[in-house]
Nucleic acid binder design. Structure first.
Lengths: 225, 225, 225, 225
DNA sequence: GATGAATGAGTATTCATTCAT
DNA sequence: GATGAATGAATACTCATTCAT
């Protein structure tokens, strides 16, 4: 468990020289610079997925990107900064992937089923990175917020849907739409966690079917006449 | 060169490893020793709750227990070892707290409600430590298993309950009891996480009510006639 | 329990080991780097001569070289590694110094006398370091082999010489050249040890004369007619 | 090479309580006490032979003797103190073993041969401990002296012998008896080292024969007419 | 006398970050 | 902009020795 030994934190009170800081703030000036920054970001994602945050060294990222360690600091303030950038990209990809696309299914049951499949697909694609973000989120509020943002996006859409369905008389009006969506969102999220990160062996179709059943029954969701 | 010419035969000085190990394995021999070990365990729990695993230094634990660092190693192999002990105690407390006790409620609705309240109470009492264990579990399989054990205890009890209720005709026989309990367990668990660890502000009674509603509706749980 | 229920899949955060290793293995890339490495090696030799291996701290070596402790690890894996480098250099210097150079003396007696003086001079120049290497060699086979290499070089050369002299009829053919050279090598070696390391007070010329006498008589070494 | 990491030295300026010190100075008061001390000494010898000085822990010695660590300090001041006692015993055993015993052989050649065999036998019996004493002697003058004492005993006897033989006309009068015995003593000593400690594979009889030959020829040792 | 327990000084090594070319 | 090198803070663990029962 030596890995868990924390490396020396950044010396406190020793700011960067004005030069490099300025360059970083200004952002890349050339196309080549932009490309370098993107390469570093990509390399960082791969390294974080592979090694987690604590065991990822700046040297690893630089090597993965094929540049020197010094060059890393031309583009990013710190290891945390590049991790934030990686996590932000993850958030955006997740939110995008959770949006409904394609034609709306005919039945509400199918709508729920599709939303479920979208979530699972999105989760599965990013499972490794989700673990790492979660791990760091425990102790870094800023990262925790990125993680929550994905949840919010999903929960808020669900809550809106429930409200609409209540107005249409498809869903039990006795439920608080917000609380219900929070609770059901937790269910889907945590189930994926156990399944895709923890490696508990579920049959995919059976699991999806159970999730969808629980969801629709919990809402007393009716097909419109 | 005299000795340049005199390498060792079978290298002398390659002896057995640590010997404090022996004493540690043997365990305390006196009452005083047992008391010290318990004090250290308690101190460690407080320190881990306060500072997390990585930021907790062995020196902090020793100081919190009012002993020297050397004494720490009289009773525990390492920081990781005492953490395992703390996490094991947590697991046992949690499993105990989740067991039903007191008279069985008259209605199934009340049974579910009580189970929910038990879970929330148990979670709340240990929320700080749960975070820390979770964080370390990401990278330490042994700790991960301790976490899993609590989940399994809860899910298995739930699954048994559902099976019984199905036999009594109280619950929709079309549900897989195991999958349903996994999914509902995830729901309760993750909801507590968002609420008690991430600090999302829920009204307790409203939340409990929603959880209970979703649970009973998902199962089509009927009061027995 | 939320996370108590979420053990990691394939534990995240178990990455590859040290990465400074890479730089160290690659060796210095610039002239400045090469110079630094040489300075450290020199500083280490001085510190080891002064303090021995156990009492030499990495901090001492870094300070002697005028660099930070971190810089030490830019060039060497460990205290042991730099010691191996120092001992290897010692071996090479010794082997070089023991080689005959200059014109071959006219008489065999003078040849033996010169070999003896070469050995003593080489030993005296490195006496301090020889002690330290010997001490560590007791428990470190790799170091022991470095010591052996010097002995072998000397003994092998002696054995060859004896064989040649036997062929020329200068030396008693009844002696085993290899055993004789081992035994005589031990004699010269251990005598220097007692004299130059243990501090026994011998008169140099008398000692050299005795060594040479014993050597030539033992071999029944004759001047060629 | 972690074994080479030096343990914490004894705290400076913290003397023992007067009580224990007094008891130690007084020596054992009872037969049982004397037996305990002897057991500890024996246990220490075994442990030092097995593990060397640095890797031998006081706890190991106490355990080998079947007493508690505290009891160790009832009889010995320190780890070094008991090592000195062990080394002193070794010295006495060696000196005793080197003394000629039994009838004096008829020929001087046989005399030399027997002395050689005595030395080898004595050395072989104590080879392990000799290594450890040598190792510590590098840095501890008091131990070095114990080691030298054995050498002196052997060398002095040899020198006396040479002087006698010179008076009898058996040995070349041109040799300095003292220097010659030093040099020849080094030869025998170092040869045993290489053979019995370093593990170099010599044929015993061939080696003894070579040693004896070199010895007698070096002295021009004649059989008396 | 015997015991179990308590003490605490001492040190190698990593890695994020800065800086001189 | 890019590079290689320099920096230095931070921390777990052992074991000889003492001491209260």
């Amino acid at each position: 468990m030596a890995d868990l030994m924390r490396p020396a934190p950044a010396p406190v009170g020793v700011g960067p020289g004005p030069d490099q800081q300025l360059r970083r703030d200004a952002g890349p000036q050339t196309d080549r610079g932009h490309a370098r920054k993107a390469e570093l970001l990509d390399a960082a994602r791969r390294v974080f997925e592979r090694q987690g945050f604590l065991d990822a060294r700046v040297a690893d990222i630089a090597e993965e990107a094929g540049v020197s360690q010094g060059t890393f600091y031309t583009y990013f303030d710190s290891k945390e900064a590049i991790f934030r950038a990686v996590a932000t990209e993850l958030r955006d990809r997740m939110i995008e992937a959770l949006k409904p696309h394609g034609p709306r299914p005919a039945t509400v049951h199918e709508q729920v089923d599709q939303a479920m499949r979208r979530f699972v697909a999105a989760y599965r694609a990013e499972a490794r990175l989700i673990v790492v973000v979660a791990q760091l989120g425990q102790s870094t509020p800023e990262i925790a917020e990125l993680r929550l943002a994905v949840r919010e996006a999903f929960v808020a859409r669900t809550a809106r849907g429930i409200r609409v369905q209540q107005a249409q008389g498809l869903v039990d009006p006795g439920l608080d739409p917000w609380l219900a969506s929070e609770v059901l969102g937790s269910m889907v999220d945590a189930t994926c966690w156990v399944w895709l990160n923890l490696g508990k062996d579920f049959d995919e179709e059976a699991l999806l079917s159970t999730l969808t059943q629980v969801w629709t029954r919990a809402l007393h969701l009716q097909e419109p006449r």
